[in-house]
């Protein structure tokens, strides 16, 4: 089946772990946008949700760090973090190992990636699922792009990974939805936590909305680090979605910095998948 849904959103642990410390208007505005995203995802009647995430040393460490990896299990557990710290109870989430196998084989025709038959979800996947599939019943296939520790995959490779992911989605009979999740500019878990470069974020989101490949791929990691912090490396998750929806524009349904969440909270959906 052709891809049935594509979007992007934030995943910062403060969104659930420090939920009530935010300005109530901002908190509810963001959650309302996530609710609309959930409705759109549900309307797509997807059989599976592929979450393109940027995990934070939950499964992958400096001893063996793949640039790209995809889950290939029939279930996943999460959150790996303390439940009270994250504000999400531990739960088992269904996967689909057979579908993962077929998609991985398809992707490998175009780009290399690792696979994992065990994967504990951290906030990078659990926070989006908490809002998008709150009963945790929809099967999920996790994808990780190393956005935490350089050397990092180049942005043009990320776009190509997205294109390969799209070919895989279109090659299987299941209805596949994809969501990329990461921060734009942010400095999470550092003394600069809460800082957001709104101008940089808006400029990036403009490029993302237009699926302007050249503009999206024009950042150097040095520029991103300088202007958007180490958290800005997670733009790779958004760019992968752009690659998967090449030539198609998107809309940003919500963007507001919520400092206590340590990120500019974002909901974006790619057009044309709701027809």
């Amino acid at each position: 089946m052709p891809l049935v849904f594509a979007g992007v959103t934030s995943h910062a642990p403060g969104i659930t772990g420090r939920a009530d410390q935010a300005d109530p208007e901002l908190k509810h505005g963001f959650r309302d946008a996530l609710g609309h995203m959930r409705e759109a995802l549900e309307a797509s009647k997807s059989d599976v949700l592929v979450v393109v995430a940027a995990e934070h040393f939950a499964n992958f460490f400096f001893n063996n760090m793949p640039a790209y990896s995809m889950g290939m299990a029939d279930f996943y557990d999460g959150p790996i973090e303390d439940e009270n710290w994250l504000g999400i109870q531990r739960v088992r989430i269904p996967g689909n190992a057979d579908l993962s196998d077929r998609m991985i084989r398809s992707i490998m025709n175009y780009t290399d990636l690792g696979y994992a038959q065990e994967w504990k979800f951290d906030h990078g996947i659990m926070v989006p699922l908490h809002f998008l599939t709150p009963d945790f019943k929809l099967p999920v296939i996790p994808v990780n792009i190393n956005c935490q520790c350089p050397p990092l995959t180049p942005l043009h490779r990320t776009y190509e990974f997205g294109r390969a992911l799209r070919k895989a989605c279109d090659s299987v009979p299941e209805r596949v939805a994809i969501v990329g999740t990461g921060g734009i500019s942010h400095w999470p878990a550092t003394p600069d936590s809460g800082k957001v470069n709104v101008q940089w974020d808006n400029d990036f989101l403009e490029r993302w909305k237009n699926n302007d490949r050249e503009a999206l791929l024009s950042y150097s990691d040095e520029e991103t680090y300088r202007d958007a912090g180490q958290g800005g490396f997670e733009i790779r998750t958004f760019i992968a979605i752009s690659g998967a929806t090449e030539g198609v524009t998107g809309d940003v349904w919500y963007y507001e910095p919520i400092p206590i969440y340590a990120v500019g909270c974002t909901v974006g959906v790619v057009n044309g998948f709701d027809e």
Binding site: W187, T190, P191, D192, S193, G194, K195, Q230, P259, A262
Partner: peptide, 12 residues
């Protein structure tokens, strides 16, 4: 490691 601080003021 990865980090160099900017102003360290953040938002909290």
């Amino acid at each position: 490691g990865l980090y160099a601080m900017t102003d360290g003021k953040g938002a909290i």
